[in-house]
Structures are given as structure tokens and as C-alpha cells.
Amino acid sequence: MKGAPPYDGDPMTDTLHSGTRSGSPAPSSSDAGGTKRRLTLRAAVVAVCGLLGFLLVAQVRATETLDDRLAFEREEDLAVILADLTTQSDRLQGEISDLRLLLFEFESTVESEELARRSLEQRLDDLRILAGVVPAENEGVILTIEDPQGQVTHDRLVDVVHDLRDSGAEAMAVNGTRLVANSAFATRNQRLVLDGEPLDPPYRVAAVGPAEALETTLGIPGGALDSLSSLSGVEPAVEQLAQLTIPARENPAPFVYGEPVPDDLPSG
């Protein structure tokens, strides 16, 4: 080992060098020849080890980047790599479409829930108007009935309200009291009462609905206006309004006997 020639740093030339030397061995191997030969072999071993280190690093560096690796691959290896990547890509594409489908499902669920919510809200609004728990506003008419002699009976007012409903009135109030589904006119002690509250002339019937149609209905010959006018001292007057607000019922009467029948529809 100690006798090895100085390592000149270039493994390639070293290998070549030692190769040529070992290729010319002296047949008459004297003692000195044997030693020289041993040293040559040892030098070759050293050179070979250096060469290996060099190549090792070279190979490691060559595989460092994918591009370099691809450039050095055999054709069939490239085909295998391509097939692998294609399979992987197919799998990922499948995953993408699965997820897209899932997303679409979720979106449509949200959409239908949104639709259901809107229709429920619309229905809730309708029921609120119907129940008179919220004020209603839009175009409409106001019918004022002057009745200084107290000639108007409760069935006249029922007729008026009925005619208005018939021609599309959606919310009505008489003298500021909202008419609801269970409202009723009656006569108690010679006084008109609406839902237990006394009504005093002049009666003022306000209705939200198609104003034109409402006025026409009231004014048809033999209709509500005609029959009211035939009473002595009674002067009905109709006024169309583009904007009219019907107040909410202040104290909605509780329903005592009406129990809702549970429906067997599956919830949700």
C-alpha cells in the first residue's frame, strides 16, 4: 500500500496506465519484478476504486432530474413510464369526474332546497296576508258609506265584502279593523258589530286588490252601490287608490276547535 504511485487524480488515465503495464509482465519474474507487479496491481485497485467513486457520483447526478433521466431511458422503459403515467392520469381523470358529479349533486340539492324554501316563503306570505297578521299594501279601493240614519244592516256589509272578495280583493279592513278568515258582521242591541267590536257610521271599507275591477264590481247596476244607495240617507262613495295599506289584525282570535289533521306526507 505504501508503495503505491502517487494518485494523479484522473482515474481514467490511471486505469489505462495500469492496464498497459499489467499487459506487459516480465516472464522472468525476479524478486524485484514480483514487487513491481504487486505495486502495479495495488495501484490498479486504487485507481479502480477512484473510478467507481467517480462513476457513482456521475450516475447519481444523472438520475437527479427527471428530464435527464427521461433522456437516458431506453425506448421500452419510456413506453412503460408513459403507460404508467397514462394509467395514473386516467385514474385521476376518473376521480375528477366523480368529484364533479358529487359537486353537481350537491349543487342541485342546494338548488332544489332553495326552490322549496322560496315556495314555502311565498306560501307563508300568502297565509300571513290571509290570516291578517301582517299589514298588506298595494293598489286598491276605499268605499265610504255615509249612514246618518243607521239604515245599513250587517248583511249589507257582508254583501259588500263578498262582492269585493269576488272581484279579487285580498286584504280588507272595515273602519280600520282587518277582516280575517273568521271575521263576522252581526247586529247586537241595534248596533253593528264586527268580531264583537261595535261599528259606527260612516263605514269605511278598504280593500287591497285590482282597483279597477273592484270599483267596477261595486258599481254594476243592481250591485252593492245600487242597493246601498236605495236606502234612505245612505251615500256610498268609491275611491281608487294606487297605494293603500291595510293594517294587521291587532289581536287575532285564537282557533280553539279547529285541530289540524296531521298529514301522512313524509317530512322533508
Partner: peptide, 21 residues
């Protein structure tokens, strides 16, 4: 020992020279 040192020197040379295969 010397062969191992040679191995390391070769590796260092490879790092320094950055041979392309």
C-alpha cells in the same frame, strides 16, 4: 484504506467536475 480514500477522492472529483454521462 488507500482504496477507500481513492473512492472518496473519485466521488469528490465527480462532484467537482460534474461529468455528464
Amino acid at each position: 484504506m488507500i482504496p477507500l480514500i481513492a473512492l472518496v477522492i473519485g466521488a469528490v472529483l465527480g462532484l467537482v467536475l460534474q461529468p455528464s454521462v
